[in-house]
């Protein structure tokens, strides 16, 4: 995966280009999936849960990427942090070698169906945030459609979405 292309997509995304940002997230998710699958054994930590936590973290912390620096070392540091956190929550001590920066092999973008931690965290959101995030994530509605369906204006929908995502991320690492 070309780091420059990832950087270009993320820059566009941070400026508001949703299509470029989705493309960035798809590509980085495939890389993270490969990373997590190679480091989780059967029955301990579900790799796709960590992929989702790392995606949320990448999303909420994307301003900590310096636009003149490569993406992958930054993204690997985040997924490594989330993976260690996931192991710790399950009562295991792990050392994860950081000599993995050269590994940019992506796994095919498939996942096994499973009720994810992120989905469970969604259930615990306050009502408005939950309706907004559910409408957009589960029903696949746009910001505009969600605004009409819930009788809100678009700005309020964007704010509720952002706060809801932050609240979901905060639930990790606290249990």
């Amino acid at each position: 995966m070309d780091d420059k292309e990832l950087a270009r997509l993320l820059r566009l995304g941070m400026a508001g280009d949703e299509t470029a940002y989705a493309a960035f997230l798809e590509r980085i998710a495939a890389i993270l999936r490969g990373y997590c699958r190679r480091r989780t054994g059967v029955g301990s930590v579900e790799p796709e849960d960590v992929v989702q936590e790392a995606l949320l973290a990448i999303h909420l912390k994307r301003h900590t990427w310096r636009q003149d620096e490569p993406i992958l070392p930054w993204a690997y540091a985040i997924v490594r942090y989330k993976l260690i956190d996931a192991f710790r929550r399950r009562g295991k001590r792990v050392e994860i070698d950081i000599g993995d920066l050269a590994e940019t092999l992506a796994e095919p973008a498939v996942e096994t169906p499973h009720e994810r931690d992120v989905g469970r965290a969604l259930e615990a959101l306050p009502p408005v945030q939950r309706s907004v995030v559910t409408s957009i994530s589960v029903d696949g509605a746009s910001i505009g459609e969600t605004a009409i369906a819930l009788g809100m204006n678009e700005t309020a929908v964007r704010v509720a979405l952002h706060r809801g995502l932050k609240a979901i991320a905060r639930r990790f690492g606290k249990d």
Binding site: G16, A29, L55, L56, H59, T64, V118, V138, G140, I143
Partner: peptide, 23 residues
């Protein structure tokens, strides 16, 4: 929520006004 749904959701929150670490 599966990952492709999560990605579509995050994409709708693409723009950020968060300040860089340097700032």
């Amino acid at each position: 929520m599966d990952t492709s749904h999560l990605i579509k959701t995050l994409a709708k929150d693409a723009r950020t006004s968060d300040k860089s670490v340097g700032t």
